[in-house]
Design a protein around this nucleic acid. Structure first.
Lengths: 150, 150
DNA sequence: CCAATTTCAGAGTAACTGATATCG
DNA sequence: CCGATATCAGTTACTCTGAAATTG
């Protein structure tokens, strides 16, 4: 059976999102391998690059994972010297994270390759439609972050 | 720090897809818990419902995972009596899978709840835009299945 | 012999639940 | 006391790589 499977007819949005994420993750993982960076480590780095000063709890809410999951990611980045954390002056309990110089340098090395993956995956889709998709997905992301209630 | 995080400004499509998938998975997992079904088990069931007769290898290509990963999912469904597999008459090596009556019954029980999750997540997005998003994501899925080359 | 399918075994990744300690 | 943060420990979910046997 070498015959290629026929393309799926009408799958649900929820299903297609899962497949795309799976394929994207694989591609990103391969691209990141030379730096021994995991997908979520890369994700955390790029979030911190755009929003320095987020705490572990804030990062976790943003990523839609538990704070315990984020601790693992963040602590490894810190051990590796890509991220540094300093206590908030007003709340000694809160550790605000930001990229180190090494972290920024590594991100600059890696970012183009990841961008290329996105471009390749959506090459067949017109800009305007990509924008519509991005808006739709962003809406869903925000609703999911609120627990599907609001 | 109880103040809600400001909504993300301009994240990349690739990033938002990852977050949405993560949020969706969590919601689906919770909804599936009473049946002790995992997310990928549910996914495999619904694919087989629409396309009976797919082999393990075909399912794996469709899901963008290795055949080894799919074996685990499929064999558990088979052990549980939700799926049955029969050898292809022409190729004794190929085992074609299909839902059992129990599998179809369980899927019928579960499906509405999963549909509700999708509806809730994309409630704020107009139909036409959901369709555009679905088309864009389907294009990306197919490109990823071809290895980003084609 | 080669290509495709299935599957076992081991490993690594990713995320979770539970519990503990601290701060305001 | 309560709510939020951080984090340790254990566990489950998910996927991969490697290797083997079988079929056409």
């Amino acid at each position: 059976m070498t015959a290629p499977d026929e393309p799926a007819r009408e799958a649900s949005l929820i299903y297609v999102i899962g497949r795309v994420d799976q394929g994207l993750r694989q591609a990103i993982r391969a691209r990141l391998a030379p730096w021994a960076l995991s997908v979520q480590q890369y994700t955390a780095l790029s979030v911190l690059d755009r929003r320095p000063g987020l705490s572990n709890a804030q990062l976790a809410r943003r990523a839609l994972v538990t704070p315990q999951s984020m601790v693992e990611i963040l602590s490894k980045l810190e051990q590796r010297g890509l991220v540094q954390r300093t206590a908030d002056p007003d709340h000694a309990l809160i550790l605000r994270a930001e990229l180190t110089r090494e972290g920024r340098a590594l991100l600059a090395d890696v970012d183009p390759g990841i961008g290329a993956i996105q471009d390749a995956a959506f090459a067949g889709v017109p800009r305007e439609e990509q924008d519509v998709a991005l808006r739709a997905m962003t809406t869903a992301m925000n609703r999911l972050a609120e627990g599907l209630g609001g």
